[in-house]
Amino acid sequence: MHCQARDFDTLDRRLIDSYQRGLPVCTRPFHSVAERLGTSEAEVISRLERLQSLGVLSRVGPVFDHARAGASLLAAVAVPEVERDAFAELINAAPGVNHNYAREHDFNLWFVMTAPDEPELEARLAALEARLGVPILRLPMLEGFHIDLSFPIPWAELERT
């Protein structure tokens, strides 16, 4: 289920640590990474493939700013715990839903609804609300205080656990 820090050597760690903050956006990005790390383009690509197949990297690609790449909203519903999975299936099937977490609270299903624009977002929420038969708590972001979603991985500490 989880990977062990010792499965990753110095080059793996440097790839993750350095490039979670951004790859060069140029013609041959992996060639340019390889030059900086003193290795070959083929080596960089095969390392990234392995890290991706192990799931340590979820992807290598663009990170979009949700707020600027369409409309989105955090939403929650309170449903009977025994019917939670049935409600979750309805939510997951709705167009625009891209995250859905069960959480331990009266509001026990938390999801992100997305749409190309605000009117379509509200239309999708209203349609889903009608389908679920329970009110949807709408929690749009009013202000964001944290814009850098990368955080350092304490490799040495992970090795001890």
Partner: peptide, 21 residues
């Protein structure tokens, strides 16, 4: 151009912290 406008924050290797424990 999308990066310059802020639609794309960065092009990156995106770690899955869950898999790291």
């Amino acid at each position: 151009a999308m990066q310059a406008r802020g639609v794309v924050r960065r092009v990156a290797a995106v770690p899955n912290h869950y898999r790291l424990g």
